[in-house]
């Protein structure tokens, strides 16, 4: 296990290298002069050469790349062209917002998805199975923005149960420590804030978690059905064990690996691709941050945003890979 973990960690090095090369290249792959593109058509010669100077665009690629990676290693993601602020400090709270949302969306997706999949497989061809699979099909095919809008309409506007926008009450903002508001309100021992933060999380989490939930449910079901037919499940039944032991101990563990793969990929997708949900719910996350940067042609922010999302994706996949080996003793790369 230790050897596997260290080997897997070593494999990160080339991946991270590739990532930085790609994000570094983004700015140089812009057709024409990058500084010109950033500043727009009406920019003066002087402004262009100034920008080239500050961004170091006039040096050779190798030196530029080394400087870029050197900065990254020190935790410096550069400076936003628009706000002139350090991207590292700007991105932190937004990253926390996105991670918090993703976490709750995945809790929702995993808990319901896996259990629905298990029951569907257990009671194959029953009305539950049928309903769950129809629901899963609808869930996969439903556009996120539509679901989000319907939720807002029903639960916020018509019923008034839950807030439709943002992460907190603007009248009563939370004093951030970690920028994960749920954790912060617990740290402040503030019950009211905790409930507010959780309330704000409900609708976006459901909107964001529905597609992964449906995918997880379908994956769990098919994987379980496969395992339930296996010889070892027959052996376990022949030992005289009850259904619960068969399903929740043996069948679930054996069928979880493909489900884990899907969960890992979905977490990655949610982290990077939540732009729609974040926009609709005015969620100040990283998706919206990058989206705004694109509007303002704020290349350093785009670069850093992509880099951070890619980095998270790689880390999630690392965790999934380590979990594989933890679950299945046969896995040795």
């Amino acid at each position: 296990m230790l050897a596997y973990t260290s080997r897997r960690l070593l494999m990160l090095v080339p991946v991270l290298f590739g990532m930085t090369v790609i994000t570094f290249s983004i700015i140089h792959l812009i057709p024409g002069n990058p500084a010109q593109t950033i500043l727009g058509e009406t920019a003066t010669e002087e402004a262009i050469s100034n920008l080239e100077e500050t961004m170091g665009l006039n040096r050779n690629y190798f030196i530029q790349y080394t400087a870029y990676v050197g900065d990254l290693l020190q935790g410096d993601l550069g400076t936003s062209l628009r706000t002139k602020a350090s991207i590292t400090t700007e991105i932190g709270p937004r990253l926390a917002a996105t991670i918090e949302l993703t976490f709750f969306a995945m809790i929702f997706a995993v808990f319901i998805g896996i259990n629905a999949g298990i029951i569907s497989a257990w009671k194959q061809n029953s009305w539950f199975d049928f309903l769950a699979m129809v629901f899963a099909l609808v869930g996969v095919s439903m556009p996120v923005f539509w679901l989000a809008l319907m939720e807002q309409w029903l639960f916020a506007q018509e019923l008034g149960w839950l807030p439709a926008y943002g992460r907190q009450e603007s009248r009563d903002p939370i004093d951030p420590i970690t920028h994960f508001y749920v954790i912060d309100s617990i740290l402040h021992m503030d019950m009211k804030q905790l409930i507010t933060s959780l309330k704000h999380l409900v609708l976006p989490s459901i909107a964001l978690g529905t597609i992964p939930m449906a995918i997880i449910a379908r994956m769990t079901r098919s994987s379980m059905l496969e395992v339930m037919k296996s010889d070892y499940v027959r052996t376990i039944k022949a030992k005289g064990s009850g259904q619960f032991l068969v399903i929740y101990k043996h069948a679930l563990k054996n069928s979880i690996i493909p489900v884990l793969t899907v969960i890992g990929l979905q977490v990655g997708v949610l982290l990077g691709g939540a732009i729609l949900t974040e926009t609709i719910f005015s969620w100040p996350g990283i998706g919206r941050y990058v989206y705004e940067a694109i509007n303002y042609r704020d290349y350093p922010v785009i670069q850093s945003g992509i880099l951070v999302i890619a980095f998270l994706f790689v880390i999630i996949n690392l965790i999934v890979d380590l979990l594989y080996a933890f679950i299945d003793p046969r896995i040795k790369y």
Partner: peptide, 25 residues
């Protein structure tokens, strides 16, 4: 009732020893 008999009063061994044990335990 069958569960009480299976593995207790009537046991069974199968053809495929390679796949008859749960690989993860």
């Amino acid at each position: 009732q069958m569960r009480k008999i299976r593995g207790n009063e009537i046991s069974m061994i199968f053809q495929e020893p390679m796949t008859s044990l749960d690989p993860l335990f």
